[in-house]
Every structure is written in C-alpha cells, then in structure tokens.
Simulated assay, not measured.
Amino acid sequence: MNISSAVVVTEPEHVEEVIKELEESGLCEVYFHDKEKGKIIIIIEGEDVNEETFKLRQIQLIPNVLAANMVYSYSEEEWESAAEYLQKLSNDVPEILNDENVRAEDIVYKGHIKGYIS
C-alpha cells in the first residue's frame, strides 16, 4: 500500500469546482485547500507506485487543473525493506560495545562503527 500527498493548483475562481471534481472522482481525498492561492492538498492511495501515478495523471486531466504534483510518498514495501535492513544492522553491533568491562573512554572511534572500533 502506498499513500502520497499531492498539491493541485488551479485558478482561485475554480477552486470549488475542482474540489468537487476531485471528491467525485474517487481518485483521492481532499485534505485542505487555500482558495486565495488556488492550491488544494490531496491524499492518493494505491497498491503500488504505478496505481498512484495513474491516479495522479488522471487528476492532472481534470478541467481547470493547472498542475498536480506529488509532494510526499510513503510505501509499505520500502518501510518493510528498511526495517529488515535496520534489524540486520542491529544484530551486527560490535562485541566491544556490549562488553560491560570496557570503559567508553577506552573505545577509539575511527569514522565508521563497523570494522573500525578498536
């Protein structure tokens, strides 16, 4: 599952009609808007980045939409991959850091924790 936010830009006089089109489209949720600036913040959900990109392109085709651009994207797959990587790293803590008999001031750090602690 991916969740992204995007900014939709329109002329201020078209904000209300673009919001209505966005809400009726089923492509996104309208989160916030600034009528004076013609900006609308939306949330797009999709199974993957391809679905999100498809939805964004459809939003860009809505009448009176001048621009629609992704601002932030969250991907469960990316998080799962990062979590696995971080878990692997947490198991690789050098023994010296877990040794209660070693004083912190006796540890010499040489720029990279893995393989450079003496």
Results as ranks from 00 to 15, higher is better:
residue 73 S to T: 03
residue 84 E to K: 12
residue 43 I to V: 15
residue 57 R to V: 03
residue 93 V to A: 05
residue 77 E to K: 03
residue 35 K to F: 07
residue 110 K to F: 04
residue 48 D to V: 02
residue 13 E to Q: 15
residue 96 I to H: 05
residue 92 D to T: 00
residue 29 E to H: 07
residue 50 N to A: 12
residue 107 I to K: 02
residue 48 D to K: 07
residue 87 Q to S: 02
residue 89 L to W: 01
residue 26 G to V: 10
residue 95 E to A: 13
residue 51 E to W: 06
residue 95 E to N: 07
residue 105 E to F: 07
residue 25 S to Y: 13
residue 24 E to P: 02
residue 66 L to T: 09
residue 98 N to V: 01
residue 5 S to I: 08
residue 17 E to D: 15
residue 87 Q to D: 08
residue 5 S to R: 12
residue 74 Y to R: 00
residue 26 G to R: 10
residue 22 L to W: 05
residue 28 C to W: 01
residue 64 N to V: 04
residue 62 I to H: 02
residue 8 V to L: 08
residue 32 F to S: 12
residue 81 S to P: 00
residue 69 N to G: 00
residue 100 E to C: 06
residue 54 F to H: 13
residue 65 V to E: 01
residue 52 E to I: 13
residue 9 V to C: 12
residue 55 K to V: 07
residue 49 V to I: 14
residue 32 F to I: 05
residue 41 I to F: 13
residue 62 I to N: 03
residue 42 I to P: 06
residue 74 Y to V: 01
residue 59 I to W: 01
residue 32 F to E: 14
residue 75 S to R: 01
residue 2 N to P: 09
residue 90 S to Y: 04
residue 91 N to W: 05
residue 56 L to S: 04
residue 75 S to V: 01
residue 96 I to G: 04
residue 59 I to V: 12
residue 60 Q to P: 00
residue 65 V to M: 05
residue 38 G to Y: 09
residue 100 E to H: 11
residue 111 G to L: 03
residue 100 E to R: 11
residue 108 V to F: 06
residue 52 E to C: 10
residue 68 A to C: 14
residue 69 N to F: 00
residue 28 C to S: 05
residue 105 E to A: 06
residue 81 S to M: 05
residue 56 L to I: 07
residue 4 S to C: 15
residue 15 V to S: 03
residue 32 F to C: 06
residue 82 A to K: 02
residue 83 A to L: 05
residue 24 E to A: 14
residue 17 E to Y: 09
residue 29 E to S: 13
residue 53 T to N: 12
residue 104 A to K: 11
residue 63 P to K: 12
residue 64 N to L: 04
residue 7 V to D: 08
residue 33 H to A: 15
residue 69 N to K: 06
residue 81 S to D: 03
residue 60 Q to A: 10
residue 60 Q to E: 07
residue 85 Y to W: 02
residue 9 V to S: 13
residue 12 P to L: 13
residue 95 E to L: 09
residue 83 A to M: 04
residue 90 S to V: 01
residue 28 C to Y: 04
residue 98 N to W: 03
residue 22 L to A: 02
residue 71 V to R: 00
residue 57 R to L: 11
residue 3 I to A: 15
residue 22 L to F: 09
residue 51 E to V: 11
residue 80 E to I: 03
residue 18 V to C: 02
residue 61 L to T: 08
residue 12 P to H: 15
residue 99 D to K: 02
residue 40 I to M: 10
residue 45 E to Q: 15
residue 1 M to H: 15
residue 11 E to I: 09
residue 19 I to K: 07
residue 3 I to S: 14
residue 27 L to F: 11
residue 13 E to I: 15
residue 14 H to F: 12
residue 39 K to P: 09
residue 27 L to I: 10
residue 20 K to V: 01
residue 7 V to S: 10
residue 101 N to G: 06
residue 30 V to Q: 06
residue 108 V to R: 13
residue 31 Y to F: 08
residue 49 V to E: 10
residue 75 S to H: 00
residue 81 S to Y: 08
residue 18 V to P: 00
residue 90 S to L: 04
residue 98 N to I: 06
residue 63 P to H: 05
residue 6 A to S: 14
residue 48 D to F: 04
residue 92 D to H: 09
